[in-house]
């Protein structure tokens, strides 16, 4: 029996905008993150991830206002990442209303911060994000700064190390698959999930709900982070249900530039698909419906 798989919308944020790229690059503006977050909350998201995707460049996280606004009206766990370097940075983001933080660059530069942060805030507050790129020899190396910086670290050794250092969860991103809609990297994800005894979140590549079902069962993961598949679904919804004030970048979808490999799907559709295939997840409660 599988455990209850968590479905986590991941919102990559640049300044005031929700963005989405491919291989973590080539970012397009999709709309206001708060709007998407609220929609996902109302439609049965199990958690949310906010990633400040340009923070590493500026060495700071700029999401405090968005976090505070979200924390006042959204009552599911919120993980925040991007540009967090010190214990003080983590404290500030938690005080703004985040429940967990995600660290990548800071952890690789200074692994001790994992231990210090997990002792100070509790290990379940510390998520380590690993950005993996497959090498020509079949191995996987970890990268930082949205896969721009090479670290030379073997992904599997690094995953075991972060567990030893006190991380509470690992979010593993396949940079090769990210944004493509071609499915998760099963080999990478499964190997990490079987190596560590802490929960693993799969990220990067989901193009249809069947991909989610596959990684949940064969990948042995505890959670799945989804972006394009959900974001495109909400934008489609906005096109079909126009409001006076349009938040999403519907022009982008109308123009047909959306990546064609993504078969967008809503949270209720994805969860129904999982439950139909006997994969446990928190069902969508009856009161929650599309607006």
């Amino acid at each position: 029996m599988t455990n209850n798989i968590r479905i986590i919308p991941r919102l990559d944020i640049k300044g005031p905008n929700l963005v989405k790229g491919i291989h973590l690059e080539g970012l397009r503006v999709l709309g206001k993150p708060e709007e998407f977050a609220r929609y996902y909350y109302e439609n049965g998201a199990d958690e949310l991830v906010y990633m400040d995707v340009v923070a590493s460049l500026y060495e700071r996280n700029s999401l405090h206002d968005i976090i505070t606004k979200t924390a006042r009206e959204i009552f599911i766990p919120l993980t925040v990442g991007g540009g967090l370097r010190t214990l003080d940075d983590i404290t500030q983001v938690l005080r703004a209303g985040a429940d967990k933080v995600s660290l990548n660059t800071a952890a690789i530069r200074n692994p001790e911060i994992i231990t210090q942060a997990s002792q100070k805030f509790g290990s379940s507050t510390i998520v380590i994000a690993i950005e993996a790129i497959k090498q020509n020899d079949g191995g996987y190396l970890a990268y930082t700064d949205n896969a721009r910086e090479h670290t030379g670290l073997d992904v599997f050794e690094w995953a075991q190390r972060v567990e030893e250092l006190g991380a509470g969860e690992i979010m593993i991103t396949s940079v090769d698959q990210e944004g493509t809609g071609e499915g998760f990297d099963l080999e990478l994800t499964q190997k990490i999930a079987n190596l560590v005894s802490i929960p693993v979140i799969a990220h990067g590549g989901a193009g249809k709900r069947e991909d989610v079902a596959k990684i949940a069962t064969e990948g042995n993961v505890n959670a799945v982070a989804l972006a394009s598949i959900l974001h495109y679904d909400y934008i489609k919804y906005l096109i079909e249900h126009p409001k006076n004030e349009q938040e999403g970048n519907t022009e982008f979808l109308k123009s047909g530039k959306a990546f064609t490999k993504i078969q967008s799907s809503s949270l209720p559709d994805i969860k129904k698909h999982l439950l139909d295939h006997h994969i446990n997840c928190r069902p969508i409660s009856h009161e929650i419906t599309h607006r």
Partner: peptide, 11 residues
Amino acid sequence: QSLKVPFIGWN
């Protein structure tokens, strides 16, 4: 059955 610890999620 192996249990991942911490338990994180909905139950």
